[in-house]
Nucleic acid binder design. Structure first.
Lengths: 218, 218
DNA sequence: ATTAATTTTTAGACTTATCTAAATTTTGTT
DNA sequence: AACAAAATTTAGATAAGTCTAAAAATTAAT
């Protein structure tokens, strides 16, 4: 009942594609991500489906089952732990680690992962800032602050809000500040405490009244 | 032109079987070592042969080419370096490391190996005492002393001799002290500087005149 | 030196993961 | 609603690695 490297890579891809876009992952999107053909993706979807790692209805896209999610998150955990090791102990640059970690993430040994985690002192984030899930698959609560406290020039993304009125949410939707939306804080105006952010190539002006209600990644 | 894990494992097996027994490795021996069928071994031998990693004449057994030897030795290098890491830094017991190292040895990244080697301080031996070849595939000269200098109770094996007369070699052969023969030094007699060793369950008395001409592992 | 036993190789089939090309379903457009 | 376009699935092939069963070559033994 072992999963092949390929199966693991598909599961990871499905997991990541699920994050953005809430519904099932399309065959095409998956194939593109895996740098392969749609027919190959279909084949793999069937295989994963018989192993109860994904749910799939024909022409409807795939979603991970709880079992599949566990596998995917565990791969991510291993990937990020190895990245920490490579950068902090072997002197790799943050841009050199990905390909190697891509191989190491498939090493199958719970004992190894546990001891590596301890050796690294239970890191919560990888060298790119990616959160490292624990052995149970829980991600650390993301460090978050309000948008009006974000340092100038910092990249971030929307994590949540403290104001839930329809009009506020409608406004956010209209200007494109959806949950998970990435942006960069490009300017800050002290006179009214408003900020300017760059999202999807557009500059957006955000008043302090709005900014103070938005949680963003730190 | 990448080698698969399976191909690498076969090369390693051929390498290790070549050490003992000087001629080519038989298909059966290889199949047994790989825990598979002779027909599968034959198939793989053909594959490796077309890749110029082994030399093979039908029904004659295989030998590694220089290219094949390089690959095999590099796998061994990686295996043993990872074992050092697991034991010295992750707190694995010497008996827990093999299976994990068996996976890690296939990670393909010269940069990783180089940096791991440096991180570990260029170890010459793994936790089992196995010599670690350098990046060029050269094994460290084995530490060796004369049999008459070996500490009491120590396990060792025959590495060579300093006396090459027919009668001396014939004597060694007769009593079973062949090259590579493992034994334990069980007793030492100060009055004539002779020693007693245990090999293959038999106790053998070795005079000082003989012992001083035999190199053994330290 | 002919058998008998053993070893090795071939032949044909199966699985995983992939591909191309064709068929089908869904979606979008007029 | 009907047709075109796009997305998805199926069908049939291929390559790696394995297997069983049978054939061929080698080695051992009488």
């Amino acid at each position: 009942m072992e999963n092949s490297f390929t199966e693991e890579n598909y599961l990871k891809a499905i997991y990541k594609l699920s994050r953005k876009g809430d519904s099932g992952v399309s065959t095409n999107a998956l194939a593109e991500r895996m740098d392969t053909k749609a027919s190959s993706a279909t084949d793999m979807i069937k295989r994963l489906s018989t192993k109860k790692l994904v749910d799939h209805k024909k022409y409807q896209g795939v979603t991970l089952t709880e079992k599949g999610r566990k596998v995917a998150v565990d791969i991510i955990r291993k990937h990020r732990l190895w990245e920490v090791f490579l950068v902090e102990h072997l002197g790799f640059g943050w841009d050199e680690v990905h390909d190697v970690a891509e191989q190491l993430e498939h090493i199958s040994s719970p004992l190894l992962v546990e001891r590596l985690d301890r050796f690294l002192n239970h890191p919560k984030y990888d060298p790119h800032g990616g959160p490292i899930p624990d052995a149970e698959g829980n991600f650390p609560a993301p460090a978050r602050i309000k948008l009006d406290e974000l340092p100038l020039g910092k990249q971030s993304k929307v994590l949540g809000v403290t104001e839930h009125s329809d009009s506020f949410l409608a406004y956010l939707k209209k200007v494109g500040l959806d949950l998970g939306q990435a942006f960069t804080l490009t300017d800050r105006h002290d006179f009214d405490r408003s900020v300017e952010i760059l999202l999807n190539g557009e500059t957006l002006h955000v008043s302090h009244d709005v900014a103070k209600h938005i949680f963003v990644a730190n």
